[in-house]
Amino acid sequence: MEQHSKPSKRVISALPSPVVQDAVLTRQESLLDEALMETFPASDPISPSVVN
């Protein structure tokens, strides 16, 4: 059985806060909505992807 060590403090501090994660998700949704509006009406749907 493998034993996993806890992430170091450096790794934990590199993770975005919940507020930042929420802002990123909100921005992604906004950009996807905008892309959808720009392609409407169209026969082919947009391809969803992660926006950084």
Rank of each mutant, 00 (worst) to 15 (best):
H4N: 15
L15A: 06
I46K: 04
A23H: 01
D44W: 15
P45R: 09
E34H: 07
V50N: 02
E2N: 11
N52W: 02
S13L: 13
P41T: 09
P41R: 04
F40W: 13
I12D: 10
V20I: 04
P18M: 03
D44P: 14
P7M: 05
A35N: 04
V11W: 12
T39C: 12
N52I: 03
T26M: 04
V20S: 00
T39E: 14
D33F: 06
L15I: 02
R10Y: 08
P48G: 03
T26W: 03
V24W: 01
D22I: 04
V20N: 00
T39P: 12
S17Y: 05
V51A: 02
D22M: 08
S13V: 13
M37H: 12
S30H: 07
D33Y: 05
D22F: 03
P16N: 02
E29I: 06
P18W: 02
R27I: 02
L31S: 00
E2Y: 11
P16V: 01
P45H: 10
P45W: 09
N52Q: 09
P48Q: 05
P45Y: 09
A14W: 10
A14Y: 09
E29D: 07
V51D: 00
A35Y: 05
E38N: 14
D44V: 15
R10E: 06
M37L: 14
S43H: 13
E29K: 03
V20H: 00
A14T: 11
V24S: 04
I12F: 08
V51Q: 01
S49N: 12
M37Q: 12
V11D: 10
P7Y: 07
K6Y: 14
R27P: 01
Q3E: 15
P7W: 06
L15F: 05
M37D: 10
S30G: 09
V20D: 00
V24I: 09
I46D: 07
S5G: 14
L25V: 11
P41V: 06
E38R: 15
A35Q: 06
D33K: 03
E2Q: 12
N52M: 06
R27Y: 02
L36Y: 13
K9T: 14
K9E: 15
I12L: 08
H4A: 15
M37F: 12
P45T: 07
V50W: 03
V50M: 05
P16H: 01
V20L: 00
T39S: 12
E34C: 07
T39D: 11
